[in-house]
């Protein structure tokens, strides 16, 4: 059995903190500890940043939280141009650039991350955090 929370957010930077606050509340309700909650705030924000900076998305995107007994599943769905997986390079941490860190950070903060994308249809960043 799972509970679903669905947020529809404008593709604007000033609303990313709404997603951040929601994941903090949900994770707190699930009795996750402070450090995990901080990690999830960053992971969700980075996925939202990705939509705003790179998706060339429509006016809105969705943040869907599925709460089960033992995990929190978070989908960030946009309806933009799709994610160019072929040209995605992991950041070179010895020679950091000022961009390209977001997905790498997410991967390190959640238990599972998956990107599902289709050209001109959109992208879902799926994140799973086990309780």
């Amino acid at each position: 059995m799972k509970d679903i929370v669905n947020l529809k957010l404008p593709c604007k930077a000033e609303f990313v903190n709404v997603a951040r606050m929601n994941v903090a509340t949900i994770a707190n309700n699930m009795k996750m500890n402070y450090e995990v909650i901080q990690d999830l705030k960053v992971a969700v924000s980075e996925a939202c940043n990705n939509v705003i900076l790179h998706s060339d998305s429509d006016a809105y995107y969705e943040v869907v939280f599925a709460v089960t007994k033992d995990k929190l599943i978070i989908d960030i769905n946009d309806y933009g141009v799709g994610f160019d997986m072929k040209n995605y390079e992991k950041p070179d941490l010895k020679h950091p650039k000022g961009h390209g860190l977001g997905l790498f950070i997410i991967e390190n903060l959640v238990d599972e991350m998956k990107i599902i994308t289709e050209d001109e249809i959109g992208t879902t960043i799926k994140m799973i955090k086990n309780v």
């Binding site: 705030k41 940043n49 000022g98």
Partner: peptide, 16 residues
């Protein structure tokens, strides 16, 4: 209280 990759990106640029 909070920083994300956009903030870190600024710091990298300034450091360089």
């Amino acid at each position: 209280s909070y920083i994300d990759s956009t903030g870190i990106g600024v710091l990298i640029g300034i450091l360089k």
